[in-house]
Amino acid sequence: MNRLEGKVAIVTGGAQGMGASHATRFVSEGAKVIITDINEEAGKTLEKSLGKDAKFIKQDVTKKEDWDKVVKEANDTFGQIDILVNNAGISVNKPMMEMTEEDYRRIVDINQVSVFLGTQAVVPTMTELGKGSIVNVSSINGLVGGAVGYTDTKFAVRGFTKAAALQLAPLGIRVNSVHPGVIETPMIKQGDAAEQIKAFSKFIPLQRVAQPEEITELVLYLASDDSSYSTGSEFVADGGLTAQ
């Protein structure tokens, strides 16, 4: 407990799913957390449940002005920023030849450009502190092939992580990427998706999908000082899928 005592974190896409798991655990470990999301209703509900150590800010992660607002409010409310978890992301479930340019650019903006904007936004504050940890949530599709658009951007997040880590290391800022496999969220419990995931589980060496909290443990490690000598690396939690 208290692995994040005295630290302030920003978690994007934090109102639900894995993001909510990260934010909740961070608060339980002593952090003060800025939760950002476009889902205002879910974000305010989570803020209320977490109490005074959490603040929700509605944010479009693709807009620089929204990042400026989030960083200002984080500093004004909690006094500093020690951790950024770039968790927001989407996928468009269409074959490449059915995907529009608008579809593709939307994936790139949310999954990739937002990571650049977020990193750029928090660096000045982290530089003043002389330290910081940025955790970029990629995917196993940042290591192996998958859907067009999603895979492209998740590989880009992995590459950006390495480039940013090298530039920011002299400032004491660490940057790492997390690569989850299949995670059990409300989305995959519905309709045909549930049956598809159940059938797919037999191809996972551990024979099951992950719970959001299992990925949170990895994100927590990278956010905390426990990972003080880790930067520019990818951390995989996929039940053994990419080991095959």
Score class of each variant (00 low, 15 high):
98 E>D: 15
99 M>A: 12
100 T>F: 04
100 T>A: 06
101 E>C: 00
101 E>F: 06
101 E>G: 08
101 E>R: 09
103 D>I: 04
104 Y>N: 04
104 Y>R: 05
106 R>P: 07
106 R>E: 09
107 I>D: 00
108 V>Q: 06
109 D>N: 15
110 I>G: 03
110 I>D: 03
111 N>D: 15
112 Q>K: 01
112 Q>E: 14
112 Q>W: 01
113 V>L: 14
113 V>I: 13
113 V>W: 02
115 V>G: 07
115 V>D: 11
116 F>Q: 04
119 T>S: 08
119 T>Q: 01
120 Q>T: 09
122 V>A: 06
122 V>D: 07
123 V>S: 06
123 V>A: 05
123 V>M: 04
123 V>K: 04
123 V>F: 05
126 M>W: 12
126 M>K: 11
127 T>I: 00
127 T>Q: 15
127 T>V: 01
128 E>C: 00
129 L>S: 15
129 L>I: 04
129 L>P: 09
130 G>S: 10
130 G>N: 10
131 K>F: 07
132 G>H: 11
132 G>I: 10
133 S>Q: 11
135 V>M: 08
136 N>I: 14
137 V>I: 15
137 V>F: 03
138 S>G: 05
138 S>I: 05
139 S>M: 11
139 S>R: 09
139 S>G: 13
140 I>N: 02
141 N>Y: 12
141 N>E: 12
142 G>D: 10
142 G>I: 08
143 L>Y: 06
144 V>W: 02
146 G>S: 14
146 G>F: 00
